[in-house]
């Protein structure tokens, strides 16, 4: 009987949060890239030792550890190939979404990286290997952010 009584006791826990806010510095290469997006341009850079083009650009090559020069940033064309895609049916809190968000990995022409962003086409119109281009937000709404690109769409 005593044991039963014990089991009825409330199990106590306490609610809490981690209230942390941060600033994130884009950095030298990051800032050039993001300001490029504001102008509707993609800026990439090249490691001559590895023959590798980075998008977004970096101030160093992670393969050979060579320093890459800020002045070597080059504009690349707004066109690429879709390497993979997914459509996600849950939001950032894990709740189900009525309309899934479609995300893709795009190898922009002239680069060796896979750029990750949203896709704007309908699911049935998306396939790996299709040619895509970025759709930029109207100029007055761009603020030097990855979201200056609304998403990528198929080029027919």
């Amino acid at each position: 009987m005593e044991q039963k009584e014990n089991r009825k006791k409330e199990i106590i826990h306490f609610f809490g949060q981690l209230p942390v806010e941060s600033l994130y510095t884009a950095g030298i290469a990051g800032e050039r890239f993001l300001l490029g997006l504001k102008e509707g341009k993609f800026l990439a850079n090249y490691c001559p030792d590895c023959d590798f083009v980075f998008l977004p650009p970096k101030l160093y090559c992670e393969f050979c550890f060579r320093e890459l020069k800020e002045e070597d940033l080059k504009e690349i064309e707004n066109k690429g190939i879709l390497l993979s895609y997914t459509f996600t049916h849950i939001d950032t809190n894990g709740n189900r979404l009525e309309n899934p968000i479609i995300v893709g990995v795009i190898k922009m022409n002239g680069t060796d990286t896979g750029f990750v962003h949203k896709l704007l086409n309908k699911i049935e119109d998306i396939e790996i290997g299709m040619e895509v281009e970025a759709v930029f937000a109207p100029k007055e709404r761009r603020r030097g952010s990855i979201n200056d690109i609304v998403g990528f769409q198929r080029i027919d």
Binding site: S22, P56, L83, T86, T88, I90, I101, V103
Partner: peptide
């Protein structure tokens, strides 16, 4: 990544979806 990926505001499980689709392909 707080500059290039987090602002897309998509549940991070999308990374597994992209990997999985690429693996099957």
């Amino acid at each position: 990544d707080p500059i290039y990926i987090r602002p897309l505001n998509v549940n991070p499980i999308f990374i597994a979806g992209l990997e999985y689709n690429s693996f099957l392909y």
